[in-house]
Design a protein around this nucleic acid. Structure first.
Length: 218
DNA sequence: AAAGCGGGGTG
DNA sequence: CACCCAGCTTT
């Protein structure tokens, strides 16, 4: 449910779902039509169909219990890189590198990555893996996501409040002059000197110096 | 690598 | 109005 959907929007749906279908088997045995009706309003309806298919496979192939490793999880319908790692880390306490949109941004800034996405995704995943502690990897992932949601935000990050400020590669830059930018369509990020910091799920620039506002070229 | 998939909240 | 949201699947 949380794939590209805010926690606030999901919460009431999630509560209704877990109340009506308390376990994987209940969901697997339900008619798809009923699940779709309960999903109405959430959008991205393929997620609902994947959820049912996933429940059916977990019920049939795993005795109603989710597999405890990333590789097996990723074979299930609707479960990709992020969700597989999140389940492995949060539910099974495995040392898995969780990378969602927030963590992507946090890591990219933290390492002052200038490679545009999605080419940088592997490097980000690897860096997150080295950063993730063996103990409470799930809590660490959730802390990183919270950091991205509250401090290291897409626009106007609150660097002054950041607990990672002293270790962050971007902290060397003048915070007061850092601000978010979205490049015009049909343009690509251009690097000039060290003042330029590029990152975002769509490959757009997140931050650059105000004085170089006209830096983007076609 | 890029397109397609939704609805809702926010500045 | 643009942008963003605990992404995944299919071209």
């Amino acid at each position: 449910m949380l794939q590209q959907t805010t926690v606030q929007a999901v919460l009431p749906y999630f509560l209704k779902f877990v109340t009506r279908w308390p376990d994987v088997t209940a969901l697997a045995d339900e008619d798809e039509e009923e699940i779709m009706k309960a999903w109405a309003g959430l959008g991205y309806y393929s997620r609902a169909r994947n959820l049912k298919k996933c429940a059916e496979r977990v019920a049939r192939e795993h005795h109603g219990l989710f597999p405890d490793n990333e590789a097996a999880l990723k074979t299930l319908p609707g479960i990709g890189d992020y969700t597989a790692a999140a389940i492995a880390a949060v539910v099974f306490d495995r040392h898995a590198a969780v990378v969602d949109g927030n963590i992507e941004r946090v890591i990219a800034r933290f390492t002052r990555l200038t490679t545009p996405l999605p080419a940088a995704k592997l490097a980000i995943k690897e860096h997150m893996h080295t950063l993730t502690p063996a103990e409470r990897p799930g809590d660490f992932a959730q802390a990183m996501m919270d950091l991205g949601a509250t401090i290291c935000t897409p626009k106007r990050p609150a660097c002054a409040l950041c607990p990672l400020r002293d270790m962050c590669a971007v902290s060397g830059l003048d915070e007061a002059e850092l601000y978010p930018v979205k490049p015009p369509k049909n343009t690509r990020p251009v690097r000039r000197g060290a003042a330029f910091v590029a990152v975002a799920t769509d490959g757009s620039v997140l931050m650059r110096r105000r004085s170089e506002k006209g830096l983007l070229g076609a």
